[in-house]
């Protein structure tokens, strides 16, 4: 990840690189996938439901949120779909930033590959673009397929093991999620200018999380923080231009 590529890389090499570089993140996906599988069992999801959700929804945060709502005897179908929508809406912004990877890629392939966008595969890909490196779609696909495989194995294993893991918080496993995203965030550091969007996004998210129930804080912090960052960016450019 630290060695910059100066020569053009073929799709096969980019795919392999994506698979290898995502492995640390995939390990953390395995940890909270296991946790999710255990919780899903406690909430009464069948193995088939676990497999259907993990393989075709493939969005960890929303799957955790839905477990809170899951009651097999009286399933709140509309609430489940709405929460999924709200929690995953951040992926709209994520997918919209993938344009540089899609240059020259056939439409059907692009729309298939976008299924593999997760916080991890996307975060890694954005980090790899740092320093102006051109990143191929195959890199995202390699990372995404690896995440997908780890997620399937881990959630199914967790569902089957069930009661063996009594209290995940005792082992610090509940912090895996936070540690993963913190590490991804630090990996995106480019300079002091990043303080504006990061601190604004964090501050807005903290306030909104206190005031508004649900997961709107991710979207609120993401939108306000990035707007603040863009405004600061343009203001700096203008100041340099007139100075």
């Amino acid at each position: 990840m630290n060695t910059p590529i100066l020569t053009p890389v073929g799709p096969a090499a980019a795919l392999r690189r994506g698979i290898i570089e995502v492995l640390p993140l995939a390990a953390s996906i395995a940890a909270y996938g296991l946790l999710w599988g255990v919780l899903a069992g406690q909430k009464g999801l069948s193995l088939i439901e676990v497999m259907a959700m993990s393989s075709l929804v493939f969005a960890g945060a929303s799957q955790f949120v839905v477990l809170d709502l899951w009651r097999p005897d009286d399933l709140p179908v509309v609430a489940i779909i709405l929460s999924t929508f709200v929690v995953n809406l951040r992926m709209l912004l994520m997918a919209a930033t993938l344009k540089p990877l899609m240059v020259g890629v056939p439409k059907p392939l692009a729309y298939a590959a976008v299924f593999l966008v997760t916080d991890e595969s996307w975060g890694l890909t954005m980090g790899a673009q740092n320093g102006g490196r051109r990143v191929r779609l195959a890199y995202l696909v390699g990372a995404g397929l690896t995440c997908w495989s780890f997620w399937q194995v881990a959630t199914v294993t967790g569902r089957l093991l069930g009661a063996l893991i009594d209290d995940p918080a005792r082992y610090g496993l509940d912090f895996v999620f936070t540690a993963t995203f913190l590490a991804l965030l630090f990996g995106m550091w480019k300079g002091k200018a990043d303080f504006v969007p990061w601190l604004t996004g964090a501050g807005v998210a903290i306030v909104v999380a206190r005031l508004v129930p649900g997961n709107f804080y991710i979207l609120a912090g993401g939108i306000v923080g990035s707007l603040a960052g863009a405004a600061a960016d343009l203001w700096r450019q203008k100041r340099r231009g007139t100075a």
Partner: peptide, 29 residues
């Protein structure tokens, strides 16, 4: 949407800031 967004100006500058802001918002609370 990505296909239809401009590549320069405010929207382009905005999209570049999205990744960090989203991750910060995700973990901070």
């Amino acid at each position: 949407l990505a296909d239809r967004l401009p590549e320069t100006g405010f929207v382009a500058a905005w999209l570049k800031q999205v990744p960090g802001a989203v991750l910060a918002a995700l973990v901070a609370p």
